[in-house]
Computed example of a mutant assay.
Amino acid sequence: MLNVNKATSEDASVHHFRQPTAEDGYALNKLVENSPPLDPNSVYCNLLQCTHFAETSVAVEENGALVGFISGYIPPGKPDTVFVWQVVVDKSQRGRGLAKKMLHAIVERPACAAVTHMETTITPDNEASWALFRSFARDKGADIVDRIWFEKNAHFGGQHDSEALLRIGPFARDSQQTS
């Protein structure tokens, strides 16, 4: 488990990074619900994210409250890739680099020992997500490729913007890199 001090000197609170548990499912559901424009999932879906995908996800607490969460998984047939399903940071925590710290924490997990690539989907207009993943790729010295994966009309019945598949890599785990 990783404890990370916040960047602000006037705030002495600490973020606690940990593997999620089933007890986080409801809190995750509320965190996403309070973070538009994220697509909400059912509480049951969030419970599965917190249990089935716990080894490749991260929960962040501050003073006992869930303030950040990334759900991810290793897709079947792609043992070198972690797919980031959803990133959520409480509005009180935004702008502090918490999302990028969570991405780094996931790829350092034992379950990601063979991971050399990260994938996610992002709508073309989600500038904050594009900036987050580009920054992560720069940190890792990795290339980025993207293409539309799920198209608005063909896959979402015109009810959701198209989603670009973003692939970052290859990269090494921080613990494997030399100075």
Rank of each mutant, 00 (worst) to 15 (best):
Y26T: 11
Y26Q: 08
Y26R: 09
Y26L: 10
Y26M: 09
A27C: 06
A27P: 04
A27N: 04
L28E: 06
K30H: 13
K30V: 15
K30L: 15
K30S: 13
V32H: 04
E33R: 11
N34I: 08
N34S: 13
S35A: 09
S35Q: 04
S35I: 06
P36N: 03
P37W: 07
P37A: 03
P37I: 06
L38V: 14
D39S: 14
P40F: 02
N41F: 15
N41D: 15
S42A: 07
S42P: 10
V43N: 10
C45D: 15
C45K: 07
N46P: 12
N46R: 03
N46D: 13
L47R: 13
L47I: 14
L47T: 08
Q49P: 00
C50M: 08
T51V: 13
H52Q: 10
A54W: 15
E55H: 14
T56E: 04
V58H: 05
V58D: 01
A59L: 08
A59G: 07
E61A: 02
E62F: 06
E62L: 10
E62K: 11
N63Y: 04
N63P: 00
G64T: 06
A65T: 07
L66D: 08
L66V: 09
V67S: 02
G68Y: 12
G68E: 12
S71N: 15
S71G: 15
G72N: 07
G72D: 02
Y73W: 14
Y73C: 11
I74M: 12
I74K: 09
P75N: 00
P75Q: 00
P76G: 06
P76I: 06
G77L: 14
G77N: 10
K78N: 13
T81H: 08
V82Y: 07
V82D: 01
V82A: 06
F83V: 03
F83I: 03
F83P: 02
Q86E: 04
Q86K: 04
Q86G: 05
Q86I: 14
V87T: 15
V88C: 09
V88E: 07
V88H: 05
V89M: 11
D90H: 13
K91Q: 12
K91D: 14
Q93F: 12
Q93Y: 12
R94L: 04
R94D: 02
R96M: 14
G97C: 01
G97W: 01
L98P: 09
K100L: 10
K100A: 07
K100M: 11
K101V: 07
K101R: 12
K101H: 10
M102I: 04
H104M: 13
H104F: 14
I106R: 02
I106G: 04
I106P: 00
V107P: 00
V107Y: 00
V107S: 00
E108I: 05
P110W: 14
A111G: 04
C112V: 05
C112S: 02
A113G: 08
A114V: 09
V115D: 05
I122R: 00
D125W: 03
